[in-house]
Write a protein that binds this DNA or RNA. Sequence first.
DNA 1: ATTTGTTTTAACTATATGGTTAAATCATGT
DNA 2: ACATGATTTAACCATATAGTTAAAACAAAT
Lengths: 207, 207
Amino acid sequence: MGNTNENTELKIIEAARKVFILKGMDGARMQEIADEAGINKALLHYYFRSKTKLFDRVFLELFSEVVAVINAEVEKASTLEQLIESLVSNYIQLISEKPFVPDFVLHELNRNPEMIIEYIQHKGLDLNKVFRLFQDETLNHVTYPISPVHLIVDVLALCVFPFVAKPIIKGFMLEDDELKYKKFIAERVSHVTGFIKSTLFINPQQS
Amino acid sequence: MGNTNENTELKIIEAARKVFILKGMDGARMQEIADEAGINKALLHYYFRSKTKLFDRVFLELFSEVVAVINAEVEKASTLEQLIESLVSNYIQLISEKPFVPDFVLHELNRNPEMIIEYIQHKGLDLNKVFRLFQDETLNHVTYPISPVHLIVDVLALCVFPFVAKPIIKGFMLEDDELKYKKFIAERVSHVTGFIKSTLFINPQQS
DNA sequence: ATTTGTTTTAACTATATGGTTAAATCATGT
DNA sequence: ACATGATTTAACCATATAGTTAAAACAAAT
C-alpha cells in the first residue's frame, strides 16, 4: 500500500499556507491550492473535507509558530534588556522570512475573533515571567516603572507594523524604492532596540 | 424629476463602506451592500457599474481621509513636540471611532499594492515639513539626532497597532475583557506620547 | 497474483455571485 | 396631463466555486 500519504498531506498544507497567506480565506480558491500542491481537487477534499478545515489547520499552525517563538524568547531571557534585544532581533528576522504572515494573521483574526478563544485553551502567551522581570527590575531601579502590557504591545507594534504597512512606507516615504525599503527594515532591529532601551532603562547600556 | 439621486448615492457609499470595511473586498457581497443601503441590486449597479468601481471609490475616500488628517496635523504644528502630541492624540481618537479601518486599509493595500501608486499621483503625504522640523531641532539640540522616517513609522505603529491587533491584545493580555481593552486604549495617548518624548527630547517636558 | 489504500480522471451537483435586462411603478417638475 | 428620471420587480445569464461521486489506474505490501 502506498505510504506517500504523509508526503501528500505536507504538500497540501504547504500549498494551502502559501495561497491562504497571499489571498486570505475569502480570496483563496480550493482549485488554486490543489494546483499549487500539484494534485487535483478530488484528492484535496479526500485529505481535508472542507476549505474551513484546511484553513483552520493552516491558521493554527502559523499562529502557534508565532506564539512559540515569542514564548521561547521569554523563557530564555533572564533580564528585561536581554529579552527585548533577542525578541526584537529574532522576531524581525522571523517576519522578514515570511513578510505576509502578520497581515494574514491579523486580518483573519479580525474577521473571526472567536478563533483566538479556541486557541487560548490550546496554549497561550506566557506573560507571567515578563511581569516578574518587570517587577524585579523596577524594584532594583534598573527600569522606570511602566505598564508591562503597554510595553509588550509597543515592542510588537514596532516590530510588526513596518511589514504590515509596507505599501504605505515604501510608497509614501521611500519613493516606492524596494531597495530603500530593504535598507529601512535592516535598520529596524537596532533602531527599535535603541528606542525602547532609551525609554526603559535608567542607565541605557550600548550593546 | 426625482433629485433623490444624491441621497441614494450617499446611502450606497455609506453602506458599501460599512460592508467593505467589515468583510473586505473579497468577503463583501453586492447583495449585502444593496440590503444595507435599503435598495436592490439593480439600482446598485445602476449607480456603480461594478463591484470594483464601488470599492475603488470607497477605498479612495477612506484612504484620503486618513492621509488628510495626518497632513492637517503636520501643517498645524510648529514644533516636533507639538506635532507628536496632537498627532498621537487626534489619530488615536480618529481610529477609535472607526476601529476596523486600519486593518481594512492595510489588508487591501497588501492585496493590491498598485493602488497606492494611483493614489500618490492624486495626493501624497507631506513629509518635507517634518524633515525640516527635525533638522532645526536637532541643530538646536532640542532633539537627539534620529531618522525621521523611523520616527514617523514608530508613531504610526504605536497608534495603529493596538487596533489592528485587538483580538490578540484583548484575548491574550487582557483576559478577553472588553472593558480592560477600552481602558487600555484610553491609556494609550498618554503612554505613547510619553514613550516617544522620553526617547526624542533632550529635556523631556511634562505636559 | 491479490489486496489495500492512494491518486487521477472527469463528469456532475448545488449554490452563490456579479452583472444584465425589460417592463412596470413612482415621484416630481413642467 | 405629460415627460423625465429614479426605483422596484423579477426574471435571467454566465460563471465561479465548494464539494461529491464513481470508476479506473497505480503503487506497494502480502
